[in-house]
Design a protein around this nucleic acid. Sequence first.
DNA 1: ATGACGCATCGAATGCGA
Length: 259
Amino acid sequence: MKLATWNVNSLTARLQHVLDWLAANPVDVLCLQELKLTDDKFPLMELQAAGYAHCAVFGQKTYNGVAILSRTELRDVHRNVAGYADEQARLVCASVDGPLGELRVVNGYFVNGQAPGSDKFAYKMAWLAGLRAHLAGELQRHPRLVLLGDFNIAPEDRDSYDPEGLRETIHHTSEERAAFRELLALGLTDAYRLFEQPERSFSWWDYRMLGFQKNRGLRIDHVLVSEALRPQVRACAIDRAPRKWKQPSDHAPVVVELG
DNA sequence: ATGACGCATCGAATGCGA
């Protein structure tokens, strides 16, 4: 079974890329972030025709918006962080049948945070605390859980093209990295780091200054698996191919294989 | 470098992303 996460930076602008990528990578579940559209504008027909008959959509106008696309039935869909009043559509959860039973899929578009000390940074940290509490509850009900999405956190120095120059800037702060480790402390594991990976592996590159061509990027899109799921992880990789296409998203998909 | 690039918004200049 394969699952993937991809921040598409507008599903309207990127629908053809999503369809092309799915044709070449027919994953069972695809988690999307930054839909930038309302539920009524979600391209359900096109995705159903591509084989993704089951979609849990949580859209929003202009910004944010997340969705889980699945080939098989999605159950117990939950939108937003439980107990955290949020104006923004950033989290959608659903259960799906996996290779060894039911699997809980949690898809998040984490807050960017703009700059340390800003109101948006405070929102980021509060949202992360809410997410942690929410996940603790999810894990009690669903021990087999995978958390995927755009975390907007580079967890370690090796996840940044310039860890020294960008020290304590957004995505690199001690607070964000501590919050990431707090998620791991719930029993979650970074699936990407279960395997040997190329140096300078990133999932996002700035549109400006030839960021992708120079591989000046960050690894901020992640797949975390629960303890019960960890023995089943067979592979995890970043697919840089669509970042080379015309008018790409600035993020690349991350794919995980469970056996 | 208060930049760059790209997307969205009722119509152009601005907010936002990361």
